[in-house]
Design a binder for these strands. Structure first.
Lengths: 340, 340
DNA sequence: TATGCCTACGTCAACGTTGACGTAAATTTC
DNA sequence: GAAATTTACGTCAACGTTGACGTAGGCATA
């Protein structure tokens, strides 16, 4: 069958190019992959032929043999929370810089969905997966890692064959935020925390830091100073309202995340309290919106770009030697704005 | 080579299963795909063997032949804007319900990145792509569609072989929002719009609706009543401040999107104006956060779940017959809350 | 009883590419 | 100038799966 000159077929192959250039498909492959082992004149003919038939390599066929695709998978619970959306951006930047394409998947904190997502990535032969596990789930991670998928997990201590982790030092971040409240002279601190203490691995560290920092500052800690609600704007507002309604004296608030801080700001405004004059507020995560709030929110920044880089680098190391990789920690930093 | 009984190999194949079950690989394939043409006793042996060697079909090999993967690609500019994050959710729900897995990619409004993303999806043989094109770019869409990738584009009028579109009736949505301001007795309306009028296809419709609605309500329209800034919180705040600084009389504000509305609320609060008593505000898109604001934001809701469904359904129709598909419109609705 | 059809498989090639290996000609080395 | 090496290719098989087709045996039908 003759390839119609200049015609755009739905898919041309190495064979089409080879026929047109008068060489073997293997040589075309060498040119495409720049393997060397071909002459300049040949290269030019092949390149011209590739152009003419609009040849694109078939990743499926290639990956079937090489078992590599130049693609990394990123798995997050969701993207509606800007924290994860910005995390995606950080990893995406790192992937792009290292010449890889990235495909994203979400699991909505559903274990079945999570499993099937890892399965899909695995069956597409991605070079590795960077994963924010639902509720710190480990078993499924281990399973897929053992089957041969290199995995970097966020925010959890896990290690083993084909698996490593990248984390922020949450405790230190929380301590930074709380110490700042102490340093600016606040003595009646309250923490607005996350209901699901038992299910999130990240949670207890912030509360622990709160307790310890208060104690080492010589301030009184009591359980009444920790209020737990949903980690949302509404949850933050409700928590702040509860604190005010209970009459707890308060001049400083530290929140589980920025959404709760936004809710707290709302409740304080409604109550006629000024921020930071009457009450100082420190958020956590430093989502982009923090800077656009009135007053702009002081928050603990978790460096998402650095996290993306470290995750990508760890993935590379896993592919070289799949074992014995220590958790990697990336920087946290307090961004001081108007609210505290 | 003998398969070690019960051993977990990095990848078992149809051949391993077949050897263990004492049948041909083709028969195992029939069982796996439930094609029929096998006896119950055979099926049981095969299933047991699959279990024992932990067999997983290799999607690459399968897709290489069938050219189908049961996977759809979703391409969006970014996910930091909650509007897109919620769009992802809508499509994801539809994909899940129709038994497909979804992979997501982002292009950051970069044409090169956009091209390479479509290339990647194409080379992974996704069954189709659902795409929010950067700045309404058409040529690249047509190119990839012509090469055989079924594409559903969001929010732009486009049709052709392997390509169709799904849209909201932006004009109607804008009209709903503006008429609401008129209906509650506001006569001095202002629109906070998007700077990049020339580059976004969606933009002019809202401004046109603003002009037409004012005129048909017998209200005075002047260019001074449209202020254009970045479609962000900061942009919205700046635009609102500009309106107030100019001394333009205003008791109703319609914004390009919710982020700008949030900025407007901030500026109004700083200026000591009450919402909605002094100034009513209507946003656009109805991102989830609208309900959590104080005051809760009245906004034009674009049904993202319905959009996901329609996109998925259109993709199916494209696969059956690749031509002559009219743009599909999905509902818009005004959600009235406290701000107007 | 011969014919036709259905069931339950097996065989073989193909999808598009790359790894392993072979080889003739050109080039370098001693 | 013969031997060794390198260059520039080609050939063949394999990756793991499915489509197309073949076939032996069982069963119903004429």
């Amino acid at each position: 069958m003759i390839v119609h000159a200049g015609g755009m077929r739905s898919g041309s192959t190495l064979h089409d190019v080879a026929a047109l250039a008068g060489v073997s498909p293997r040589t075309v492959s060498r040119v495409v992959n720049d393997e060397g082992g071909f002459g300049e004149a040949t290269r030019l003919r092949v390149v011209a032929a590739i152009e003419k038939v609009d040849y694109r390599p078939n990743m499926l066929a290639r990956a079937l043999i090489t078992r590599r695709t130049g693609t990394v998978g990123l798995v997050v619970p969701q993207m509606v929370d800007p924290f994860f959306a910005e995390l995606v951006d950080g990893v995406h930047a790192a992937a792009k810089a290292s010449g890889r394409t990235m495909i994203i998947a979400k699991h909505d904190d559903d274990l079945t969905e999570f499993d099937s997502v890892l399965e899909t990535l695995s069956s597409f032969a991605v070079d590795g997966a960077i994963v924010y596990s639902p509720r710190g789930e480990r078993a499924l991670l281990m399973k897929h890692a053992m089957r041969g998928l290199p995995i970097v997990a966020f925010g959890m201590d896990i290690a083993g064959t084909n698996i490593g982790s990248v984390q922020w030092d949450i405790s230190r971040g929380a301590t930074l935020g709380i110490e700042h409240l102490v340093n600016i002279g606040r003595t009646n601190l309250v923490m607005l925390s996350h209901t699901g203490a038992g299910t999130s691995l990240l949670l207890p560290r912030r509360e622990t830091a709160f307790r310890h920092t208060l104690q080492s500052a010589g301030l009184h800690f009591s359980e009444a100073r920790v209020v737990r609600k949903d980690p949302t704007i509404d949850g933050g507002r409700a928590a702040m309202e509860a604190v005010l309604a209970a009459g707890t004296p308060v001049d400083g608030v530290f929140t589980f995340n920025d959404a709760m801080a936004i809710g707290a700001l709302q409740a304080l405004a409604v109550a006629g309290l000024r921020v930071p004059d009457d009450v100082a507020v420190v958020g956590f995560n430093d989502i982009a919106m923090c800077a656009a709030l009135v007053p702009a929110l002081t928050s603990v920044r978790l460096d998402r770009v650095a996290l993306g880089w470290e995750a990508m680098a760890l993935l590379d190391r896993l592919r070289v030697s799949p074992n014995n990789h220590q958790p990697v920690y990336v920087g946290v930093e307090l961004i001081i704005r108007q609210s505290a």
